[in-house]
């Protein structure tokens, strides 16, 4: 039984890292959003598995929020925004796909080296989970810095949060933080979509962050 518990958790967390890589090389917004939905779906499965394994029913709430909110509601809302703004063209990336993938691999290697070494005494399940979640966090960061479009930066941030949720649920018996951090990811998504995108649209007729750069305080 223990073998199965470990293998399924391993499979789900590993898939999350893999999907983060797939997000890295998407060059269309719609595709990126769909992949993010898959990311959130795998997260929901992973959290549900942890809830089952740890016999912690409150984690099912976290899983449900990830499933309903991150995998369905947010992607649908982003789809609508993109259609309404008419920006479903190619994403401008700062770094090419090749270098971005190489950087991503370097980051994953880094997180494995760091986390596996320092957690030598922790139980293997939590250990692998932590290493994978750090990879997802770093890949989310990479996605944010390699994109100029505000929508894809938000997606990068949400995948980063998925990594944090994975870490928090993997740390057995961690109080408070799971529920609250999920509530916060909801809040952040609301703020980002509701206020920033619409305000940016109102003012610039574009959500390309590069257009914002022109207005930086001192470069007038």
């Amino acid at each position: 039984m223990h073998g199965l518990v470990f293998d399924v958790a391993h499979l789900l967390a590993g898939s999350l890292v893999l999907i983060s890589f797939i997000e890295l090389y998407q060059d269309r917004l719609f595709a990126l959003i769909n992949i993010f939905a898959a990311h959130a779906l795998v997260l929901a499965l992973s959290v549900a598995w942890q809830a089952y394994v740890q016999e912690a029913p409150h984690l099912y709430i976290t899983a449900a929020i990830a499933l309903v909110f991150k995998a369905v509601v947010i992607p649908m809302a982003l789809h609508r925004i993109i259609v309404r703004l008419g920006i479903h063209r190619e994403i401008e990336t700062v770094v090419g796909i090749g270098p971005a993938m190489l950087l991503g691999m370097g980051l994953v290697a880094l997180s494995m080296v760091v986390m596996l070494r320092v957690t030598a005494e922790a139980d293997p399940l939590a250990r692998e989970d932590l290493a994978f979640s750090l990879s997802v966090v770093l890949l989310g960061l990479l996605l944010m810095v390699t994109r100029r479009n505000a929508v894809s930066q938000v997606i990068g941030f949400m995948s980063l949060e998925n990594g944090l949720v994975l870490a928090a649920t993997g740390a057995k018996g961690m109080p408070l933080v799971v529920e609250i951090s999920v509530a916060f990811s909801v809040l952040i998504a609301f703020i980002v979509i509701g206020i920033f995108l619409f305000r940016i649209r109102e003012r610039f007729d574009t959500v390309d962050v590069q257009a914002l750069d022109r207005f930086r305080g001192e470069r007038k």
């Binding site: 932590l130 979640s133 750090l134 966090v137 960061l141 944010m144 505000a150 930066q153 941030f157 980063l160 949060e161 944090l164 870490a167 928090a168 740390a171 961690m174 933080v177 951090s181 952040i188 703020i191 980002v192 920033f196 305000r199 940016i200 003012r203 610039f204 962050v209 914002l212 750069d213 207005f215 930086r216 305080g217």
Partner: peptide
């Protein structure tokens, strides 16, 4: 324009900082 750009930059950098801090807390 400037206020939105500043808020966006603050939001992105602040959230990344906050995310790293949560990882440290975990």
């Amino acid at each position: 324009h400037e206020a939105l750009e500043a808020a966006w930059k603050y939001f992105i950098l602040g959230s990344v900082g906050i995310a790293l801090a949560l990882f440290g807390t975990i």
